[in-house]
Design a protein around this nucleic acid. Sequence first.
DNA 1: GTAGATGCAAACTTTTTGCAGACTG
DNA 2: CAGTCTGCAAAAAGTTTGCATCTAC
Lengths: 149, 149
Amino acid sequence: MVKAAYKTRQQELLLSYLKETKGKHFTAEDVRRHFEERNLSLGVATIYRQLEKLVSEGQVQKYFIDEHSASCFEYTGESSEDRTEAHFHLKCEKCGELFHVECDELSEITDHLKNEHGFNLNPFRTVLYGICDKCGKEMKLSDGKKSED
Amino acid sequence: MVKAAYKTRQQELLLSYLKETKGKHFTAEDVRRHFEERNLSLGVATIYRQLEKLVSEGQVQKYFIDEHSASCFEYTGESSEDRTEAHFHLKCEKCGELFHVECDELSEITDHLKNEHGFNLNPFRTVLYGICDKCGKEMKLSDGKKSED
DNA sequence: GTAGATGCAAACTTTTTGCAGACTG
DNA sequence: CAGTCTGCAAAAAGTTTGCATCTAC
């Protein structure tokens, strides 16, 4: 039996936040602070429970950066038609910046994984780690000793 | 000034474990349990401290799967010569399996990111999420129904 | 009225840290 | 002997859960 799913004030608050931030990532704490600043309290438990529901419905994507930071969420839309364009996440291991990249050539990896490895990649959830352009250049400048990587 | 770096029993135990498991992934808890079973206790704090040191030296790679599970570590070797072959990690969102794949074509994404986006990918740390071949087929078979993990 | 949602606080998990004592060189 | 390392236990940080209360329908 499917649950009745009541409509609540908290639910609508969260949904309005999601629509404002479409295409950007946020944490549960970001949501809580957003409403706290407006004197509209939303308990963390509620935030997590609502987000979890949306994640299981596929409206929100959840991904994980590293153990020191909170999970990232990202609203991608209610239906496949108005879905946010698929994009990858690049995380710089040095400066910590998280980039969103949309690039046709990157979708080749998606095709390759599907065709050759039978693996159906979910780009939203995938975070590619490495060193970004800016940090790479800075490291070259200050690199006195030989590095093996 | 560089620290003196004493050689300890615990250090050697850990190193022997690493060499046994080369190319496989493990968690801090796996290490602790491994030695507990042999009545050789290694404190978790020590395990984390030693692993952290090896990670910063580049001998061990550390990556994150999701917030419910512990960080994964993987020993890749002391020098670039005997380094483990670079490989990607594919994580199935359904069955939870973590696959290691070495594939030349996948390295194209590394080149593309470097050349077009100036991003120097670290494949060891990168986990690609999606649905594996086996689960994808199972899901097709049971299509109408809601399926659980 | 009843099923479902909320909010608080406590529980939980993994990882880090402070510190006293043990060990290495 | 001095400098490091270890192990314990407590602390952190993010997330989940139990439960009493409140709300939607």
